[in-house]
Computed example of a mutant assay.
Amino acid sequence: MTARPARLGLYIHWPYCARICPYCDFNVYKAAHAQPEALLDAMLADLALWRDRLGARTIHSVHFGGGTPSLMAPAAIAALLETADRLFGLAPGAEIGLEANPMEHERFAGIASAGVERLSLGVQALDDDSLKRLGRDHDARTGLAALEKAQALFRRVSLDLIYARETQTPESWRRELETALGFGTGHMSLYQLTIEPGTAFERKLKRGALTPPPDDAAADMYALTQEVCASAGLPSYEISNHARSEADQSVHNRLYWEGEDWIGIGPGAHSRVGAFAKDGRAGGAAHRRPELYIEGVKSGDGHERERLDADAEFIERLLMGIRLTEAGLDVERLAALTGLRPDADGLARMRAQELVLARGSTLVLTERGRAFADHVAETLIPDFDA
């Protein structure tokens, strides 16, 4: 099997937030220290550097993440999109997405006029006490009002919620889900809360000031999520993502899960490009601190490079691809790209335990297997030294 040419996505990282959430481990900084003009200039210059490296490539999706990119000036969003189109060319109907805080709802019209057509709205909870515990600066009423406004302005909207929160029960989560589903949103990203290293939540957990639900309650909430969303016409197409139709699915996120190419600009943004070094898949990460990124781009390169060997590329593609609930992991494509296949004994065990099944050359997690996706992926990794 010959590997087909990869599609290209563009990720734009805006690192500034009005308030840093205690569960967040992303590369973020307080907006009070922002250098918006200098950062915009650096990102525009970085796009030109990428064009010099890659040559002619068409961009199929653009995603503004962060941080809080809804804090960006609409003129800055428009400038980045216009420059990306001029240097690379945006594919007809390219997805242009942006992550937004409900508190920026007054900015939504300007964001839409700048060219964004898909808004990911970080409501995170529909319970005021939970929102306070999550460090959010909006209440549930504001979150839902922002959702209604977004649905009136943008062609596609995704609602983001977090479950398995402190004090939350499966019954209260069901009520939140049913309320959210009542708005008819085409896409929902529903994430189980994880306590990440280095976050304020980890520090609270260590000193006994945070008590997440027990594992069995979290597992019940995951199962409940699948059941309620599927019944409402939003089945999962990835472990944490649900859509009414294929048209509602995230094009940009599927680029990641399917192992396509993407370039990242902005502090800490990651890249994976097959043609990056002309002879194999390679990656890189932009300097994390905004000032270092800005200075690095001025000197001709704001990124640290790395080359992925076949083993590393195999693991990355396996971990991402197995998450797709219907599309699954194409083993033949994986072999064509890396020369490697999943561990045969491990695969046999996962099939015997009914955690994964084969559809031709594609491996798909079973409904039960989705709750153990990381375990399945780790079991399928071969012993590279054997």
Rank of each mutant, 00 (worst) to 15 (best):
A282Q: 09
Y237A: 06
P74S: 11
Y191Q: 01
C21W: 00
A275K: 04
Q353K: 15
A73I: 03
A243D: 06
S231F: 04
G110T: 07
T142P: 00
E176M: 05
A218E: 03
L121S: 04
R203H: 05
G259F: 11
T167S: 14
G259P: 13
R281A: 11
A230E: 04
I239W: 03
L80T: 03
L210V: 02
A114H: 06
G369R: 12
A230S: 04
V331F: 10
L329H: 10
C17A: 03
L98I: 11
H287E: 13
D311C: 14
L347H: 10
P102N: 02
L44S: 11
A218Q: 06
R7N: 08
C24N: 12
P92D: 12
I20T: 04
A230D: 01
P214F: 09
M103V: 00
R317F: 05
T83I: 02
A219N: 04
A230V: 00
L126F: 03
E332I: 06
H270F: 10
A76D: 14
F64Y: 07
A152Q: 15
Q353S: 14
S130C: 01
A327I: 05
L153H: 14
Y11F: 12
L340S: 12
A94K: 08
G66V: 06
R281H: 09
A114M: 08
T58W: 02
L49G: 04
L334R: 12
D345G: 12
E196Q: 08
T225Y: 02
P235V: 00
D127N: 15
A275Q: 07
A84D: 07
G268E: 08
I265E: 09
H252M: 11
Y163L: 01
L134S: 00
R86L: 02
D330I: 10
R317M: 14
R281D: 09
M188I: 15
M43C: 14
D160N: 05
A109S: 13
P22E: 00
L49K: 05
L210D: 01
D383H: 14
V123N: 02
L71Q: 02
G302E: 08
L131S: 00
C229H: 01
P290R: 07
P214S: 09
G360I: 11
G182D: 08
A358K: 14
L144T: 14
A358W: 11
A31D: 10
A34D: 08
P15R: 08
D343A: 15
